[in-house]
Amino acid sequence: MLITQQWQHIRKVVNDAQKAAMHCSIATVDSNLQPTVSPIETLFLKENPSGFFFDTYTESLQQNLPQNSKACIQAVNSSRLFWLKALLKGEFSDYPGVRLYVEIGDLRLANAEELTQISRRIQSLKWTKGSHTHVRGFQVHDFKWVKYPKMMPFDQ
Rank of each mutant, 00 (worst) to 15 (best):
K19W: 09
Q74M: 15
L81T: 15
K150N: 14
L33Q: 12
L88G: 11
A21Y: 02
M22W: 08
V37C: 13
T36S: 13
V98N: 10
F44W: 07
S31V: 07
P39F: 02
M152S: 07
R120C: 13
T36Y: 10
I118C: 08
Q123D: 12
V13Q: 00
E41C: 10
K147W: 10
L100Q: 06
D16E: 09
H134V: 01
V102E: 12
D30G: 03
E41A: 12
T42H: 11
F82H: 08
H134C: 09
F143R: 01
G90R: 10
M22S: 14
T128A: 11
S31Q: 06
V37M: 08
E47L: 08
R136F: 02
G97V: 08
Q6G: 00
I40E: 11
M22C: 11
D30C: 00
V140I: 14
I118H: 05
V146R: 01
L88F: 10
T28W: 01
L115F: 05
T56L: 08
S69H: 14
W7T: 06
W83D: 05
K12I: 12
H23E: 01
D155I: 12
K126W: 05
C24V: 11
I104P: 02
N32Y: 02
K70S: 09
E113Y: 04
V140K: 09
N77Q: 12
A110G: 06
F154V: 02
D106C: 11
